[in-house]
Design a protein around this nucleic acid. Structure first.
Lengths: 183, 183
DNA sequence: ATTAAGGTTCAAGTTTTTTTGAACAACTTG
DNA sequence: CAAGTTGTTCAAAAAAACTTGAACCTTAAT
């Protein structure tokens, strides 16, 4: 809440406080992260950045959230990977600083790209493998049953593949209605 | 370890074998389960039932998958809850027997109902709580920033709420194209 | 070249989740 | 009602996931 700053624009040593509402939002994202299968610390970090107008350095994040260097580093990497944070470099400051991506469309499509698409890929490979096993199946009845199952799975795979673009599209809709400027 | 069976139609003692392709499908579902944040054993159990034409008893499942009674019991309960398995009772057999629900539409909507909707509910409560905290925030600037965030989150919440029905609808589409009879 | 700051890695420690199995409840049957 | 099934519960064990922090890069300033 207070911020005794010296030369650095970073929060330094003291000023390691979150307002109550910030803590609530961070906790909200912490839970959201868990519910979509991401580590808690990702949620916390994102939540913190989401709350702030100014960009924060990795150190700021460690101090405000009381997490270790390792968590902060790995968490930020994952968030970058997901497209959930962007880094900015202030001139003549060596530190990398971070801001949250707040366009839902971007968040969702980043998430789907990193978490959804790889699974669909892997699924395709598994289906191929399954077909091979079925070609080797000696028992005719069993092979027939297996092929029925293979067809079902292939159909599911196609449906899920079709779904993703729609999700991005639907979420993208009206994302911008709630924002003044954008992109 | 051996069980001298008798009248029961259940697989008994021997016949505790999966074909290679069945094992592959079970493993596929095991991974799929993990990737959507469900316990592995749920995936395995569902996968096994998915492979079989005949219904299986809890005992069959324990033996074929080598899992404990507890896992089987809890896993089946969760799958029923998700609408991913249905139980059938053979006449004059006391055992409950299970079959997999293979309509993707049902699977997806069950999953969303159990996993998605509760989170949206909780989110609503959290947003309420956030508003209360913001009303108590003393610092005017901070409160203003907080309200901007609250509006963003409220918008996201609305969008996600809108998304679910579409997902069910899109997945439901053409589900039946890949099946001879249905519902 | 040396020192220091900013960041990354990863083995080890911690926490959380999942699985197990023995005890127990509910029912049937002889 | 004693004995045998079937299935549930839950505390403890095992496994998986997450976090930590010290060692280690890399780059910048002296």
């Amino acid at each position: 809440m207070f911020r005794i700053s010296s030369k650095s624009k970073s929060l330094s040593s003291s000023a390691v406080l979150l307002t109550e509402w910030e803590a609530a939002i961070i906790d909200l994202f912490l839970n959201a992260a868990q519910s979509v299968g991401l580590p808690k610390s990702l949620g916390q970090i994102y939540g913190l950045l989401f709350c702030r107008d100014e960009s924060l350095s990795m150190n700021d994040i460690m101090e405000l959230l009381n997490i270790s260097k390792g968590s902060a580093s790995q968490g930020l990497r994952a968030l970058r990977q997901l497209g959930a944070v962007n880094s900015v470099f202030a001139r003549n400051d060596r530190k990398e600083r971070f801001v949250a991506e707040i366009r839902l469309r971007k968040l969702v499509s980043g998430f789907l790209k990193e978490q959804g698409e790889p699974h669909l890929e892997k699924g395709l490979a598994r289906l191929d493998n399954l077909r091979n096993l079925l070609d080797d199946e000696g028992d005719f009845k069993s092979a027939k049953r297996g092929r029925r199952r293979e067809r079902i799975l292939t159909g599911w795979h196609r449906q899920m593949s079709r779904l993703l673009p729609w999700v991005k599209m639907i979420v993208g809709k009206s994302d911008r209605l709630h924002r003044k400027s954008s992109d």
